[in-house]
Computed example of a mutant assay.
Amino acid sequence: MTDVFAAADLGPVRLRNRTVKAATFEGRTPHGQVTDELIDYHLAPARGGVGLTTVAYLAVAPEGRTHREVIVVGEDTRAGLARLADAVHQEGAAIAGQVGHAGPVANGRSNGVRAVAASRMPSPLSMQLVGAATERDLTRITRAYVAAARVLVDAGFDVLELHMAHSYLLSSFLAPGLNRRADRWGGPLVSRAKLARQVARAVREEVGDAAAVTAKTSLGDGFRGGVTTDIGLEFAQLLEADGHLDALQLSGGSSLMNPMYLFRGEAPVNEFADAMPPLVRWGMRTPVGRGFLKEYPFEEAYFRDKALRFRDALSMPLMLLGGINRLATMQQAMADGFEYVAMGRALLREPDLVQRLRDGAATEGACIHCNRCMPTIYSGTRCPEWVVDPL
Rank of each mutant, 00 (worst) to 15 (best):
I377L: 12
A44C: 08
A211T: 04
Y145N: 12
L169S: 11
G112T: 13
A210Y: 10
L279E: 03
P278Q: 07
E385M: 13
V387P: 03
E69P: 00
R114D: 15
A132D: 02
S254F: 13
Q237A: 10
G226F: 12
A102C: 14
A211K: 03
V159S: 08
V153F: 12
A247K: 04
R197N: 06
A301F: 02
E271M: 12
G186I: 14
S171Y: 05
L84D: 09
D242P: 02
G187Y: 12
A267E: 14
P45G: 08
A96Y: 03
R382E: 00
N17E: 01
T229F: 09
D336T: 12
G252C: 15
L320M: 04
L81S: 09
D209F: 05
A328D: 13
R311M: 07
G323Q: 00
V60H: 04
R382P: 00
V159I: 09
Y57H: 13
G177K: 06
R192D: 07
L348H: 13
D137H: 15
Y145E: 07
V354E: 03
G156Y: 10
V60W: 05
M334Q: 15
V288C: 02
G344I: 06
F310Y: 15
G97F: 04
F157L: 14
G360A: 13
V99C: 07
S379T: 14
I368G: 00
R382A: 11
V105M: 00
L58S: 14
G187F: 11
R143W: 00
